[in-house]
Simulated scan of single mutants.
Amino acid sequence: MTLLDGISSRRIATARLNVNLLERLGDRPDGIPVVLVHGNISSALFWQELMLRLQAGYRPIAVDLRGFGDTDPEPVDATRGLADFSDDLAATLDALELPAAHLVGWSMGGGVVLQYALDRPVLSLTLQAPVSPYGFGGTAGPDGRRLTDDDAGCGGGGVNPDFVARLKAGDRTAEAPTSPLNVYRAAYVHAGYSSPLEDLWLESMLSTRTGEDHYPGDAMPSGNWPGFAAGKRGIANAMAPGHFNVSAIVDLPVKPDVLWVRGDADAIVSDASFFDTNQLGKAGVIAGWPGEEAAPPQPMVAQTRAVLEEYAARGGTSREVVLPNCGHSPHLEYPAEFLAELTAHIEAASDDGN
């Protein structure tokens, strides 16, 4: 595991599993706790630059989720949605003796911290390019209406098998569109972005465990188009709408302040995502698409906005920040802008008494 100067790692025992953490050298235990939760096909390594940029007085902690990085590769029970991950996070904070923290979740990690907030108190929430509160795929409209009872077109069956094979093999080449490096370049960041740390981000992606208990998970046959449905194991299935729905955050009696940061060129989480099976069908990439009424693309951004608007209407505070010419990774692509928004958000939440 490659660490930048000023970052350390350690594995800690929790009540659920052994968890790997990244921390900043020299931070005080009483610093403002900022817990960073990565997304799918990544690890805590992606947070290192942000950790180093946070000013003194903060205590950034980046966590490897199960099946990623150096945390124990325990299986993922997809029928619990993302609760395996959020429960692991809770056990980690307990082991660190942190009753609450400012949580930052990226992509799938955004869903993890929202699930966490449903179960335990938090100081604030920052959602970076988060998965929709209604999961990934298989829903329609801003209200997240579920399209089929079996979540057809969702989960492990929709993941490109060549990409999975290249992940498993540790492929570091750019020889195919499905290589992890090319997926990073095409989907994680905006066109034209480059970084001298690209090899480190690739290392992070390649730490992903593959298989039916991890990424992508299993799949089930379906009588609905496109012929497969969400399974019960693994990461991709954990975000299927029948397993994952955190829209109940609008009902929290105590509502932490929410910051939502996204790029306007996000290829993964958008209202026309090419990682959404129904969008691929509409575009003719997958044959036999039954049409807009039966299988509309998921309006991921509109769904998040609708939930957060309702959250605010019920007494919470939320703010949306859209970065132009930005892809799925604002903290990498526009680090100064992301850092400014994050610290202002945490300071405002602290002023509110959180």
Rank of each mutant, 00 (worst) to 15 (best):
G192K: 08
G170F: 12
I7T: 09
G81E: 06
G26L: 07
Q48V: 01
P29E: 09
P196L: 10
T277E: 05
D87H: 14
F163S: 00
S207Y: 04
H214V: 08
G157C: 04
P253W: 12
M205E: 09
D218G: 12
L96C: 07
R11C: 15
L197K: 04
G158N: 07
R24M: 01
T277M: 15
V63R: 10
K168C: 08
H345V: 07
N18Y: 00
S195P: 05
K168D: 09
E74M: 08
P75E: 10
W201G: 08
V261F: 08
G157E: 06
S132F: 02
T14N: 06
L118S: 00
A336S: 15
A165M: 05
Y334D: 06
S42R: 14
R305M: 03
L89I: 06
A100E: 15
L22H: 05
D64P: 10
I41A: 13
R24W: 05
V113K: 12
R166A: 09
N325H: 14
I286Y: 09
A62T: 04
G137D: 05
D149C: 10
L118C: 03
L118T: 00
T148P: 00
P73G: 00
T317A: 13
D257R: 15
W225L: 05
L25G: 03
N18E: 14
I41L: 10
G141A: 11
A302C: 14
D171R: 08
G141D: 08
L259M: 04
G211I: 14
P75H: 10
G144W: 13
A240M: 07
R59D: 03
V301N: 13
A15V: 02
G69V: 03
L123V: 07
L114E: 15
L202P: 00
H102K: 13
G157S: 06
G111Q: 09
R24E: 01
L103S: 02
A336R: 12
S8T: 15
E175P: 01
G111F: 03
L280A: 12
H214N: 03
